[in-house]
Design a protein around this nucleic acid. Structure first.
Lengths: 215, 215
DNA sequence: TTGACAACATACCGGGTAGTATGTTCATCA
DNA sequence: TGATGAACATACTACCCGGTATGTTGTCAA
């Protein structure tokens, strides 16, 4: 029987591997990242990684799933919030934007995953896992999509084409994963300021009303 | 001495290779694309490609450069336009957005190049070529950046942080390279409608005034 | 007609990498 | 205290892919 301490250290080791992998996937992409790269960034070797995970694709899927788990957790407090949809959207969008900054390596891995075609070498099993993850992500996106639909019905948002606007909104909210770079001595307030800028731009893009609070 | 006809067919063959390569880079990324993939999509073999180009990196650089050339050409009529900067920005942004749709494979390749770290195997020569291309792209971006600075000074745009807003603007204008998918029987008008939506969202994001033309 | 060369195709080589097989160490427990 | 297995490291293999070396075919000029 495994002791609590052993479980703890094993989970910690697995987590360290995922963190390192997420960083590598962010910096170099999937194929450009070798398992040896991940191992080296941990000060370890392949042996450690293949002791905990069966394949590179498995690690990738885990990073993807955890990234999405964190996103769901971040918007959970607001998902079923009462009041106008536009306000609910703002709360969720802000939480999402902060999340993009704070967990950037994981979110970049999610992005890489969305834009990737797992071809040839991958097993059918891995393929179905991957499809499930993409559905997981689509479901998440739909929470926002429904919020802006409702907001438009309420007369708070004004836009023409739904699907285009939806894409533009997400691209804006996700964009910190591409251009955000951590600064020395950065505070939580700095990050929240940044997230607020992103949400404001997206909100404006949706045709949201601004009550005379021009910067 | 080479005849005009031979030149013609050679240039055409080189162009076909670049088109095929751009498509592959778009669909699979740089490393995931093998030279054999490009050759296969041409119904040819490696021999043809290496007869015209010296390396995979060379082809990539060519696609990048041509993509940027087309962008410069698209905004050229408006670059030194008189009148308010905000209007100049709108003209350029629209031309840019149309360009993202019409030359998507090349633009995706540019994006891949911007987000890529050419490491290790590439020669110093290739490295300097690549740096030059990145400068080429930065210069292009600065044309837009200066337009929104001027527009803010004119009181036509209202935003807080310049560098963040600049990033958000570009992400929005570039985004069709990720989500646009050609439709059967699509007309030029369809594409221009799409581009107009994109420009409107970006314009709103900049805090641009809308003169009572809500959709 | 023939020699030369462009425009490819084919065959091959070497380096890098995912995955495996096999040690090695150390804590835990009977 | 000795056996057992988790948690790694080391050594090795098989394969893919960029690049090269070499063959083949058609065209054109003299």
């Amino acid at each position: 029987m495994a002791s609590g301490l052993r479980d703890q250290s094993m989970e910690s080791s697995r987590g360290d591997i995922l963190d390192a992998a997420a960083n590598c996937f962010m910096e170099r992409g999937y194929t450009e990242t070798s398992i040896d790269d991940v191992a080296r960034s941990l000060g370890a070797t392949k042996g450690r990684i293949y002791h905990h995970y069966r394949s590179k694709a498995d690690i990738f899927a885990e990073v993807f799933r955890i990234g999405m788990d964190m996103n769901y957790a971040a918007i959970e407090p607001f998902r079923n919030m009462g009041g106008p949809a536009a306000l609910r959207w703002q709360k969720m969008a802000f939480a999402h934007a902060v999340q993009m900054v704070v967990t950037k390596p994981y979110q970049r891995t999610v992005w890489v995953g969305v834009k990737m075609h797992l071809r040839g070498a991958t097993t059918p099993e891995q393929r179905s896992v991957f499809e499930e993850l993409l559905n997981y992500r689509t479901e998440y996106a739909n929470v926002f999509r429904e919020a802006i639909i409702q907001g438009r019905q309420d007369g708070d948002f004004h836009f023409d084409d739904l699907s285009i606007t939806n894409q533009l909104m997400f691209v804006t909210l996700n964009s910190p994963i591409f251009w955000y770079a951590p600064r020395a001595g950065e505070t939580r307030a700095d990050i929240e300021y940044l997230a607020a800028q992103v949400v404001t731009a997206a909100y404006r893009g949706l045709g949201g009303e601004e009550k005379g609070k021009r910067p």
